[in-house]
Every structure is written in structure tokens, then in C-alpha cells.
Design a protein around this nucleic acid. Sequence first.
DNA 1: ACACTAACCTATTCACGAT
DNA 2: ATCGTGAATAGGTTAGTGT
Length: 446
Amino acid sequence: MAPTSTSKISLPCGSRRRRLVLKPTQQGALHALFQQNPYPGIATRERLARELDIPESRIQVWFQNQRTRQLRQSRLGSAKSQGQGPTHGQEQPPSWTQEHFTKDGRRKRTSISPSQTSILLQAFEKNRFPSIATREHLASLTGLPESRIQVWFQNRRARHPGQSRSGPMKDMEANPKPSPYVRVPVEPGLLARVPVSSPQLALSNTLGSMQGFPAGTTPVPCMGFAPPVFCGGPGSQALGAMMVPPTQGGQGGDNFPAAKGLRSCYLTGPTLVGSLFIRHALLCPPSQGEHQQQHECTGMTPLPFQDYPQPLADNPCQGLKEAGHAGRNSTTQCSGEGSQLVIGTGQAQDGAFLQPAHAEMPGWQQQSLPTAWLSATLNPEHQTSAEASSFLEELFTATEMEEDTHPILSGCLPQEDPLGPLETPLSEEEFHTLLAMLHDSTWPQA
DNA sequence: ACACTAACCTATTCACGAT
DNA sequence: ATCGTGAATAGGTTAGTGT
């Protein structure tokens, strides 16, 4: 996908996280520590994460890659020199192995609750290779760090080999795009069947591309950034969220500055199992502290459909922009054309939502004193929330979202709702079918 | 175009917590 | 002790970045 004219930041091509470009100071610090210990434990990695302002998972990956590079080079060197000792210029002798270094401990085993497992399992059933956006969203849903989500999927794939073991692309082929129509179970008396093309209900069958609209028109923007609903069986909590970027400029991300400061959050209000609330925007201001707690976004009670405010004539998303500058305890609703959408039901599960979605992000405010050798090399300025703030920005511009929505927004939309008028709530089976479709609709396509 | 490397993957093993 | 599963490893591949 083409980057927006205002964006200088390359975007992940759908499934991968944005590539981290390490600063020279960060590189130097990592290499320095690698010389001391190529197998840092969790304590060291977390300290590095704080002091270098790099997520711990990225520290871990860097050491993995660095060990591979070193071993490869050392083997190459030894092959060339025919065993004349260590290759010069290497940070470690070619013979270093893990047992030569004292491990300062593994990460404490993460306890994944049944409700969290349920969410992950349902996601796994739909897509064994979730994209970074999906993993981030799952992290938000479960309260687990994204890196733990990733490891969980790795372990799950290894232990439950499915029909496609050839990798992500094959797996995606096994998940064909569902119909653009979804059947939405709602509370009795509310809209039941909803075509995603409905201007009233831009239900995110994903959605999102702003392509294909003639100038001057205001398409119904619709971008789901993750499976909108994960729902277990009867009695379980249905949780989900979607956001719909505004149309301005045709792209959500950079034409929508407030998005940088927004996060999705999840309802902890009345549990409405089996129901979806639509045209409901819930936006959280950017985190201003170390951790934005989920309860800051609570207390919202879904409104009856007709109670939602009408679109603002001039700028339907003014509220969103305001939300980006609002205090940390504020929430904003914005609906109508170009509005954001959150669908959510359910309640906090096992307190998981009290954990920040980006728990891995290091926080300088609470860091221990950096070691001298590190402090000397580090840039004093840190933007702790930079990555977290770009959360929605990435989602808004993710390729997978655009590609998913293209068929919907480029002419295959019916003029009328073929499903007819409102009807009674769906059966449980239908409901789960819907969930599967909604879920499917956001997975990247090959 | 190419080298480098972050991100991601599989396969395998270790290790923790529940039973 | 056994089992299930989270964490970590080696090593390979993919794809973004810089030259």
C-alpha cells in the first residue's frame, strides 16, 4: 500500500510489526552487554529495556539474532582460517556457548487464565498466524503482553499442528474471506441483521480502505482493526472493539492526528452477552503515566441505538480530536459519518484488563538507576509512549485492513439491504457464526 | 542491486505448576 | 512422577532499511 503523503514512517506490510531502527547508542549498549553475556536473563533484558527504551521482547529478539550472527560468522571464520583460533573482530570467541554464562533467570511463568485462553483459542482457530495488529488487539483483550501472545501462538502451533503447516501464507489461504454481510445479534428490539454496507451501521467486516470513492463523497468509513468480537460459549464474556477512521483525505492515519493518542479500551459495564452495540465510540486519551489502566475507560453504558448523537455536520470526529488532548480520565463518543465505532460487551476478566495493553513498554519514570556505562551512552530524551501512541495509527493504515475492505467499498455493495428489515435476535448458533465471520474478516489475506 | 538485520518462523528442549 | 504448557534456544526465512 502506498504510504500517505504526510507519513515518513514506513508501515508494516500487513502482518509484521514495524521494523525497529536502533540508534547507534542503543546498538552500542547492546553490543557492550552482548560481550559480557550473550544470554541475558529476564532481569537483564528488562533493565536494558528500561534504559534503552526498547521493548523487552525486542531486546530478546536482538540477542537471538545476534547470537545467530555471531555463530554463523565464527563458523565461517573457522572454516576459512582452518582452525587458527577466534576470528578477530568478533565480540565473542567462536566457542562460546550458553553454559559459559550464568543465566540470571527466566521470565516468570505467565499464568493464563481460562478466559484468556478462551480468547486466544478462538483467535487461533481462525488464524494460526495473527498479524501484529491482531496480536496487539489480543493483548488488549486479554491483558497479556503482546510478546506472550506471540509465544503462545508459537507453542500452540507446535503442539497442535493444523491443516496448514507451511506457514502464514498457506494458513491464510485456508481462511477465505467471508461474505461482506454479517448477521448481527442484538438486544431484543434493536437492529438485528446488518449489512456492513449500511451507512447506519458500518460494522467492521473490516473495512477500512478509503479507496474507490469519488471526490466529494463521504463514504462510510469502516475499519476494523482486529477481530471485533471474541466470545466464548454461553455465559462467557463477549468482548470486542472496532474503530472506524474518519474519511478525511482518504486515509485514516496521518490525516487524523488524534489517532496517535488514542487507544481502544473495553467495556466493563453491563454485561450483554450475545449483543453488540453499534455506533458506539469509546476512545481513551493517550496514556500520560506509566500505565493507563483499563478502569479509566469504564463506566460507559451502551445507549439505545436511537440515542446516539447525530453526525456533526462539519466535523463528525471533532470529539475524537478533542479526546486526543483531553485529560486521562475522559472518554469521548463520536458517531455518525466518519465516526469511530466500538463494539463491546462484557466485563473485566480476572482483572486482566487492569494490565496495560503495552505492558512491555519501558517506563523511565519508574526505572532503577541506570548503570554508569549505559547512562553515558544514552540519549537523555526518551519518548516512552511513542510506540504506544502509534498503536491506532498503525492499525488505521495497516495494509491488511485496506485490502480487506476494498471489495466492500469499491462497488460490490448492494443498494439496499437484501436481508430485509429488523428481525428478532439470532439464535446462539447464528450468533457464533457471526462471530466467526466477524473474526475472519479481519485476518490478512494472501 | 545488494548487504545487513529486525521480525518471524519451526523444531526442540527446559522448566514450572497443577494433579 | 506425570502432564500440560510457558519460556528459551538454534537456526532458517522474510522483508524493511541503508548504501
